[in-house]
């Protein structure tokens, strides 16, 4: 067991030496891997931040029918009956002009200004929510209701929020696809880096075989190299993302505050960071294993 651990410790030290010497090609590989990881991570973060934003907004589309201020009780009831029968309407809430005024007074902090008006300028209104899975129903209802007697104005709200939520879903799928593609790229980068390492160490590998090294002994430092290269790339990617997020927050802080009181673009969580580094290290190891398996067989002692 001690010998096994010592062998692994030596392979790890060897891999660290190979990362340091030469440093520049290693650094370039780390930057390439980091960039490949940063792209889907940024997309994932953008989707998550947009999802948070759309969650803070009222994403449920609502149709508001504002009635003529001269509408009588009978005319109002007629509109209510039409709404109750309409297949696109799920719930209908009647907001009297008095309730609307009270709401305006308290929620918008316009009490003084409203009192100065002397009369209530607001109309009675119906707030209608649509049926689940029928995104176009409210649009049809809006078009129909616009021609109903005593309906002054029909306004469809929050459709954009629903579109935003759909965009977020598309963004998440895109991030996943991009991550998969760039994961293949990461594996390819590691594969090629290890290939060059093996070619550069041909004499050492052949000699090692001659003096009794097993394939596992020869393979081990390359696997650790791939693992460390991937993990280094993952950390570099996180660093790039952190930098991008900080820059974005500095530049867009004002605009983000306007969007529903969102404080800023949030960076990767610790679990995200651990997943990125872990997956990158795993892919690095995998790329190294593929490369070593393919190229080591070619080097038999001569």
């Amino acid at each position: 067991m001690t010998r096994w651990l010592a062998n692994h410790a030596r392979a790890l030290r060897d891999a660290l030496d190979r990362l340091r010497h030469p440093l520049i090609p290693t650094a370039l590989s780390v930057i390439v891997i980091g960039s490949a990881l940063a792209l889907p991570l940024l997309l994932h973060l953008a989707a998550r931040n947009l999802a948070t934003l759309s969650g803070q907004l009222d994403a449920e589309p609502q149709l508001t029918l504002f009635l003529d201020t001269n509408a009588t009780e009978t005319e109002t009831e007629a509109v209510a009956r039409l709404l109750a029968r309409h297949p696109a309407a799920s719930t209908v809430r009647f907001v009297t002009r008095a309730e609307a005024l009270a709401d305006l007074r308290t929620s918008a902090g316009l009490g003084g200004s409203v009192d100065d008006l002397g009369r209530n300028p607001l109309p009675d209104a119906f707030v209608v929510t649509g049926r689940e899975g029928d995104p176009t129903g409210l649009e049809t209802l809006r078009d129909e209701a616009a021609s109903w007697r005593k309906v002054e104005h029909a306004q469809l709200d929050a459709l954009w929020a629903r579109k935003l939520a759909a965009t977020v879903r598309v963004g998440r799928v895109a991030a996943l696809l991009l991550a998969s593609l760039l994961g293949i790229a990461l594996t390819a980068v590691t594969f090629n880096t290890i290939r060059l390492q093996i070619l550069g160490r041909r004499d050492e590998i052949e000699l090692s075989k001659l003096i009794g090294a097993t394939d596992a002994f020869i393979r081990r430092p390359f696997l650790y190299f791939g693992l460390l290269l991937g993990a280094g790339g993952g950390l570099a990617g996180l660093g790039m993302v952190a930098l991008a997020v900080a820059t974005l927050n500095r530049q867009l802080s004002g605009a983000l505050l306007l969007l529903g009181g969102v404080g800023g673009f949030s960076g990767p969580a610790i679990s995200d960071a651990a997943a990125v580094v872990g997956v990158a290290a795993g892919l690095g190891w995998f790329g190294a294993a593929l490369s070593v398996g393919r190229h080591l067989r070619r080097f038999e002692p001569s």
């Binding site: 075989k209 003096i211 009794g212």
Partner: peptide, 10 residues
């Protein structure tokens, strides 16, 4: 073979 070769000095 690797274990055999450990018996040799080359």
């Amino acid at each position: 073979i690797p274990y055999l070769r450990r018996n040799f000095g080359l």
